[in-house]
């Protein structure tokens, strides 16, 4: 009689299957990005090339299939960067100020405001889309990357304000009072004491809003009409939309995979850079 497989072994098998499920698409992306030819199949290529990346950055021309179609992948990367950075800057500035005010000030209707923020934060952006669209037209946000960033930021603010308020709540009031006694004005106290202490919180907010701006699809889909102003998310999607029903070589799989790889890089980098800060958070409690 065979011995029963140990529980541990079963665990590993299950883990391996899950791993395969996660890894395979990534592997396909990686292999196709560096292969001379690629398609909706997984095949080990005979040689490795950087040509796909050259195409992405506009340094080489697409040789096959949709060669006639102009791709603006280099521009898409820049556009995505602009959206992400502006989203981050807008969010961090507004969220720090609002979070600090909500954490420190007492005013009438504060709890109502906090609840309203929470509810707003839980509402999907698409639900607010129609009025938002009208508003964007009057603000001139159509075909405007800054406008896209501001709309994305507006969707992020409510939840981020909650997060930031939590961080400020954990900064002891003593620190501020001590700074006042030593001669700081309220503004000096904010910049010299409170914000540096809120460093981990601000890192979290910046991290989340950068990724939200970088990865957002819905807002540019509605506000951006010109292909040269597409961010990566919209670009990748429309490349498929441009070739309805076509399969195989009509879709430029190689450059798209290269672009997708590039698309992942900022998230990875940001994670590794801010990992130290993120680890220092320790449930938001500031070590004094």
């Amino acid at each position: 009689m065979l011995g029963e497989p140990s529980l541990e072994l079963i665990g590993y098998v299950i883990l391996a299957i899950i791993l395969l499920y996660i890894i395979l698409p990534m592997a396909w992306l990686f292999i196709t990005a560096f292969a001379p030819t690629g398609g909706p199949y997984l095949r080990i290529p005979e040689s490795v090339t950087l040509e796909n990346f050259a195409i992405v950055f506009g340094l080489a021309k697409l040789k096959y299939g949709a060669a006639a179609m102009s791709l603006h992948m280099d521009k898409w990367i820049v556009n995505s960067l602009i959206i992400a950075i502006v989203t981050t800057v807008v969010t961090v500035i507004l969220v720090s100020m609002a979070g600090y005010a909500l954490s420190r000030l007492k005013f009438r209707g504060k709890s109502l405001l906090m609840t309203a923020l929470l509810v707003l934060g839980m509402m999907p952006t698409t639900a607010k889309l129609l009025p938002l669209y009208k508003l964007c037209i009057s603000f001139g946000f159509i075909n405007n990357l800054i406008g896209v960033a501001i709309v994305i930021a507006s969707g992020l603010l409510p939840t981020q304000i909650w997060i930031m308020k939590g961080f400020f709540d954990y900064i002891p009031r003593d620190l501020e009072e001590q700074a006042w006694i030593f001669g700081c004005s309220k503004l000096e106290t904010l910049f010299k004491v409170v914000l540096p202490c809120a460093g981990p919180g601000i890192t979290v907010v910046a991290f989340l809003s950068f990724l939200a701006g970088w990865g957002n699809f819905t807002v540019p889909l509605i506000l951006i009409r010109t292909e040269t102003l597409y961010p990566i998310s919209l670009g990748i999607a429309t490349t498929f939309i441009h070739h309805p029903g076509e399969v195989g070589l009509a879709v430029p799989y190689g450059p798209l995979c290269a672009l997708s790889l590039i698309y992942v890089i900022p998230s990875m980098c940001l994670y590794f850079i801010s990992r130290k800060y993120l680890m220092a958070i320790k449930l938001g409690r500031l070590e004094v």
Partner: peptide
């Protein structure tokens, strides 16, 4: 609490 500035 001594209120030492933790980031300095």
């Amino acid at each position: 609490s001594y209120a030492l500035f933790p980031h300095m």
